[in-house]
Amino acid sequence: MPLEKQKQQYNDMVNRIKPKPPVLRNVFWAFITGGLISLIGQLILSFYRSQGLNINDAGAATSATLVFLAAFLTGLGIYDEITRRAGAGSIVPITGFANSMVAPAMEYRAEGLVFGVGARLFTVAGPVLVFGMVAAWVAGILYYFFR
């Protein structure tokens, strides 16, 4: 049998017998966790507003608080346990971004501050930043010419 055909047949078999992810359960937990994080964010935002911050400052303070909480939970080894169940529910919010920065920092601390933490800090978050900056740059150019 030609190799390409063999590969195709094998691939079909693997896809047929591979265990399927529990999509409904995953979606449910993603919805609950993502919603809960958003709710906590809203409570924090309302609190800062009630203390007299304007909407922009309160938003920035809320982000900073959520990032701190996520970094703290990562340090305690809890955040990855949450995400194991919640999936995108705790990866997509800003807390997931905090987790993706703190996790490599902890992992590579043993290899020193410069070549460990410094060099590896963005191994996970790097692509988000690179494409985020490129997208912002493109949007800025478009805005400049077409506003």
Partner: peptide, 17 residues
């Protein structure tokens, strides 16, 4: 995990396989 995949404290959802 550190060498081949992700930092151990990074939140990921492991596929069934």
């Amino acid at each position: 995990e550190k060498q081949y995949r992700f930092p151990t404290e990074l939140g990921v959802q492991r596929p069934m396989t």
